[in-house]
């Protein structure tokens, strides 16, 4: 049917169906971002007080103060390391789940989702009892006499990355799993009969065809890690703060809303740009294809 043959009611229908999500998005996303944008141009007077005049002081401060650059760079680095470690740990797991002949595959997938049944905050706190000075590992090492004093494992960048991997790994595994599951097994058989060893067949067929899933997983893990705030708060020292924690401090401790808004927008723009550039070069359609199998 051509567009001209659609009646007015037909043409309205998509908009009616989209209306709930559009309104929700507008009220809960566009409006707050708009308000934050306005705030970022207000002048900060003192804690909790701002003057409604137009100034670029906040943006100027962000662009010139190396304190913020340092934390932005640190956030990129930590999120990048986390995403790559997730990929390295998640790919083999996803491969095994997808390739197993085990009859109850759903059980393996269920195990992956089980951690989500426990609150994210509680899961993060549980690391304190494992890595802390009085935690399982240190107590055990002390009892065995392998160390004389507790090893410092908690409140380090390592523990922050570990906590984030703990929470992001299932996303990576599911993304890669869906991609591998979608590969026709006959392609592997074909490669084998044409002269590939099992490893060569993996490199020629499974790896390239699962790449969209892996790339989608990397993007997802990177964005979620770079935007995370609870994990560094609980498992990191002040030095291990990420950009999200800086925003929190600016708004909640300093009560500097204009600067807080500015920094929030910076993170939003940065992560948006990463996703945009990434999808430009990877092709978002391919990433999405990886997501949908």
């Amino acid at each position: 049917m051509s567009a001209s043959m659609l009646s007015a009611a037909d043409r309205r229908r998509p908009w009616l169906l989209l209306a709930p999500s559009l309104i929700t998005l507008f009220v809960l996303m566009i409006v707050p971002i708009g308000i934050m944008t306005i705030f970022s141009f207000y002048e900060f007077v003192t804690a909790g007080v701002e003057k409604e005049v137009f100034t670029t002081a906040n943006w100027h401060e962000f662009l010139t103060d190396s304190f913020y650059h340092m934390f932005l760079w640190k956030t990129i680095r930590v999120a990048g390391i986390t995403a790559i470690l997730c990929a390295l740990m998640g790919y083999p797991a996803a491969y095994c789940i997808a390739m197993t002949n085990y009859k109850h595959k759903w059980l393996l997938l269920l195990l992956l989702i089980v951690p989500f049944w426990i609150s994210f905050t509680i899961r993060t706190f549980s690391w304190i009892h494992i890595l802390g000075e009085q935690g399982v590992i240190n107590v055990l090492l002390l009892k065995l006499g392998l160390v004389n004093e507790p090893i410092r494992m908690l409140y380090t960048e390592g523990s922050v990355i570990m906590g984030m991997i703990h929470f992001l790994l299932p996303y990576m595994i599911l993304n890669v799993y869906v991609a591998i599951e979608g590969i026709d097994r006959n392609l592997i058989s074909a490669a084998r009969t044409l002269g590939c060893t099992a490893w060569q067949a993996f490199r020629e067929v499974v790896l390239p065809l699962s790449l969209p899933g892996l790339m989608a997983g990397l993007l997802l893990c990177f964005v979620l890690a770079a935007g995370s705030y609870v994990t560094p708060q609980i498992l990191g020292s002040t030095r291990d703060a990420l950009f999200g924690n800086i925003i929190f401090d600016t708004i909640m401790d300093e009560l500097n809303w204009p600067m807080g808004s500015t920094l929030s927008l910076v993170l939003l723009i940065f992560l948006g740009a990463v996703a945009a550039v990434y999808s430009r070069y990877m092709g978002l359609s391919r990433v999405l294809k990886g997501l949908s199998g």
Partner: peptide, 20 residues
């Protein structure tokens, strides 16, 4: 002997061409 050392041509029902 392993698959890749046999010299056999196999054509699949769904062709199994490498899509990439």
């Amino acid at each position: 002997i392993p698959i890749h050392k046999r010299n056999i041509g196999l054509v699949f029902q769904n062709y199994a061409l490498f899509p990439h």
